[in-house]
Design a protein around this nucleic acid. Structure first.
Length: 284
DNA sequence: CCGGTCACCTGAGTGC
DNA sequence: TGCACTCAGGTGACCG
């Protein structure tokens, strides 16, 4: 579920709770959510101090330190991954259904001293690294720039070099990182661009407008602590940006700009919401 | 290079 | 109530 604004919200909440604390112990109840060996992951993170929790594209990045050695825990939440605080599960009543990993932090009140990774669909992945392997892994991800650290001209170059449909490209994390289905649809609507248009048809002005609208939307969504569509929540509850969606999930309702009915179609296997009038964009 | 489909999982909602 | 079916915020593998 989570896209850039949701992951940003979760990362900053986690940073607030965990930074400076020691991971006293770690446990995994379902090894399938760990990339690699669960025992290696728990051994690597136990005893580490959490330096900071940041966002890398849609990844959560826990930067860790044990004595003079740097380490890292990377988490991709995919569709239904979340974190919550609770008791250490191996003592009090056992693991909750859908909780798959636990990290006990120092200096927190009992009963809420453990960071629990929950993932209904089990698509998410946790992976732990030493400093060197981390750099290699991150390089291998080939993440494109964040929308906030991208010049309009560079964005236009990146887009126009590529074939394919505009929306599909926005979802490609190597082109720009952080966008997902909701914010791709919302950004295209705000910029008045047709989701299936070809990037070759985009003028520099179109690209600049798209990037500017994308940033406004992502900023506003971060302010609102993300969009809660079905079950997303951060450490501090749900987001509210879904109330500001103009097209996502609004097929059959009136376009807020022109009143035409919002339509939905499949593009690249993803449901795509758009206004057939505002986003006809002359391009097909 | 590109697009389409499926697989990975579970749960919620809908329609009969 | 029950059952069958569709859909979901992501990504990667596979195939033509």
């Amino acid at each position: 579920m989570p896209e850039l604004p949701e992951v940003e919200t979760i990362a900053s909440d986690l940073d607030e709770v965990a930074a400076g604390r020691i991971i006293e112990k770690a446990a995994v109840s379902f090894a399938g959510i760990v990339a690699g060996e669960a025992e290696e992951l728990t051994a690597l993170v136990e005893g580490c101090r959490v330096e900071a929790v940041k966002r890398l594209g849609k990844w959560l990045y826990f930067s860790l330190q044990r004595e003079s050695e740097a380490a890292a825990l990377l988490v991709h939440l995919k569709m239904t991954g979340q974190f919550h605080l609770g008791p250490w599960p191996e003592e009090e009543g056992g693991w909750l259904r859908h909780d798959h990993a636990a990290f006990k932090l120092s200096g927190l009140p009992a009963g809420a001293d453990t960071l629990l990774y929950r993932d209904i669909r089990k698509f998410g992945r946790l992976r732990a690294f030493g400093a060197q392997q981390l750099a290699d892994f991150v390089a291998g991800l080939g993440l494109g720039p964040d929308p906030f650290g991208l010049e309009a001209e560079d964005f236009h170059q990146r887009l126009s070099r590529r074939k394919g449909k505009l929306k599909t490209l926005l979802l490609d994390q190597s082109l720009v990182s952080g966008l997902g289905n909701i914010y791709a649809d919302e950004s295209l609507f705000a910029a008045g661009l047709c989701p299936w248009s070809s990037p070759a048809e985009l003028t520099a002005e179109d690209s600049a407008r798209l990037l500017a609208q994308m940033r406004l939307i992502l900023r506003a969504a971060i302010e609102a602590r993300g969009s809660t569509v079905s079950n997303y929540q951060g450490l501090k509850g749900t987001g509210s940006y879904q109330k500001s969606h103009k097209v996502y999930g609004r097929d059959g309702s009136a376009c807020p700009r022109c009143g035409a009915l919002i339509e939905r179609m499949l593009l690249g296997g993803r449901s795509t919401h758009y206004c057939p009038v505002c986003q006809a964009g002359a391009k097909k």
